[in-house]
Every structure is written in C-alpha cells, then in structure tokens.
C-alpha cells in the first residue's frame, strides 16, 4: 500500500479528515522549506503538497504566482525540490509528500528519470496541473513503475466519463477543484461541492480531496464535513508572503493558520 493510501486508511479508522497544506518549494527562500514542512506536520497536516515553481503558472491566482516568482528568484529547480524532499525524509518517513506543478520541468528532466529520482527522494504522489488524462498515459506509466501515485484534478464541469478515466488512471486521492477559476479566488460554494462529491463517489472508492477557495478554519471545517481531505494553498501562502522579508519568523508563525483549521475540523 502506498504511503498516501495508508495515511487515508488510518485517518478513516480514526474518523478523521485529512488536512493537506500546499507551499511552493523555495518560497520565499530555499532554506525555509524543509523546516516549514516539519512545522506543518506539527500543526496537524496529514499529507504535504509541495509546489514545484514554474515561470508560467497558468492555473494559479496572484498569490501562488507571486510565490513562484519569489522561489524562482533563487533559481529553485525540480532537482532542488527533490533534494528538499530527501532532506525532509531524514526526519519524517511517515507523512506523504505530493509534488504539485506544471508539466514542462518534468518534460525537461524526462519522465523516467524524474519518476526514478522522485521515488528515490521519498515523493509519494505527483499532481500535474496542465496534464489532463488524455495526454497523461506515458507519465502515468512511468510514475506507477516507481510506485508513485498520479493524482488528477477534477472540476465542476468534468463529466462522468472523464471522472471515470481519472479514477482509473489515478491513485492516492482525487483532487476536486471546488469552482471554475484559479487558485485563491473567493468563490467557494459548499453545497455545490457536496452535490458534486456525491456524484464522484458513485464512480470511485478513491478518497476525494477538495481544494481552491478554502481560506479559514470555518470553511475548512465545512469542507471536511463533506470531503475526505481539505487542501489549503493560497490561505497559507498569503501568511508566508506577509513574512517574506522576515523569513526567520515563517516556520514559527505561518503554520498557525493550519493549526486553526485542524482544530476546527476536529471539533466538527
């Protein structure tokens, strides 16, 4: 069983929902990332999503675009991101790590070399925003050969056939994008999400995580009531951005938003 599947199974046994924070690797500078990942686990994260910075993050709103720009100012490459995961694994062999990003850096490294290196570093899943299932066969095969879970994004306008295809090819969990838009927008509609999740669950036993638009403890708790996992990106990255000129304070202060969400989710 993959580390992600094992984590969801043990959470389910304890009646708990997964909290999945996202940070961009190397934001605002590379030395912050590994200590911050550990601090997020301390704050209650069950799975970590680590963004691979890209120059043209087409699906992201201004908050994560800016995070990519801060990381790229330090020339953070996919190789370095894998080094960060390897370093994180020295002290944490339990918490699953999912890489999230765009296809081109992986194309440049090559699918097979990337999958081998990611597995060796201790990565568990790979989510590629601009790779729909129609184009994904080759990368999916390479990931699966290295026991990595390919994680697909489903959207409000994904029809049954597309969801079936994603769940057949994907692993770990299915990431449901809560609205039509870019990351960080304020358009969350909990009832609409609940309705769509019911439809998705008719097609798959994979856990379903929900992301986009979860900005505070209240919305995290509302989504946790209907989903298997809550993914939080821009709300956390906003805290990091506010401390970008005081990077020494990020590890101590930014994870508080995750701790608050954890508490609200567990109370519900």
């Amino acid at each position: 069983m993959s580390r992600i599947a094992g984590r969801f199974e043990s959470l389910r046994a304890r009646g708990r929902k997964a909290l999945i924070p996202y940070i961009t690797a190397g934001d605002p500078e590379p030395s912050v990332t590994v200590p911050l990942l550990h601090a997020l686990v301390e704050a209650g994260a069950d799975v970590l999503e680590l963004g691979v910075p890209f120059s043209d993050p087409m699906a992201d709103g201004p908050v994560i675009q800016a995070a990519c720009e801060r990381a790229l100012a330090h020339h953070v490459s996919l190789h370095q991101v894998l080094d960060m995961v390897r370093s994180f694994r020295e002290q944490d062999s339990d918490t699953p790590v999912v890489l999230m990003g765009y296809l081109n850096p992986i194309e440049v490294m090559g699918y097979e070399p990337f999958a081998r290196a990611a597995h060796a570093a201790g990565v568990d899943g790979v989510l590629t925003v601009d790779l729909p299932p129609e184009e994904a066969a080759e990368l999916v095969a390479c990931l699966k050969a290295e026991q990595l879970d390919p994680i697909f994004l489903a959207a409000p306008n994904s029809d049954a056939e597309r969801i079936r295809r994603m769940t057949e090819n994907g692993g770990g969990f299915l990431y449901y994008v809560s609205f039509k838009g870019v990351t960080g927008a304020n358009r969350l509609d909990v009832q609409a999400v609940a309705d769509k999740l019911e439809q998705i669950r008719g097609h798959t036993d994979l856990p379903v995580g929900v992301g986009f638009g979860i900005r505070d403890a209240e919305s995290a708790a509302q989504i946790a009531a209907v989903a298997d996992a809550v993914v939080v990106g821009s709300a956390l990255v906003t805290r990091i951005a506010a401390l970008a000129d005081r990077p020494g304070e990020i590890v101590a202060r930014a994870p508080q938003v995750i701790a608050d969400m954890r508490a609200a989710m567990d109370r519900a």
Partner: peptide, 19 residues
C-alpha cells in the same frame, strides 16, 4: 483527432478548460 501534429500540439490545460 486530439490535436497532434506528430509529437506536437495536443491539449495541456487545467481540467476546467477541457469542457
């Protein structure tokens, strides 16, 4: 049918744009 010119072209977008 899916927009390929040999290895080039195709559809590489976020899921919401597929529809």
């Amino acid at each position: 049918a899916r927009g390929h010119f040999g290895p080039y072209g195709g559809i590489f977008v976020a899921e919401t744009l597929m529809e």
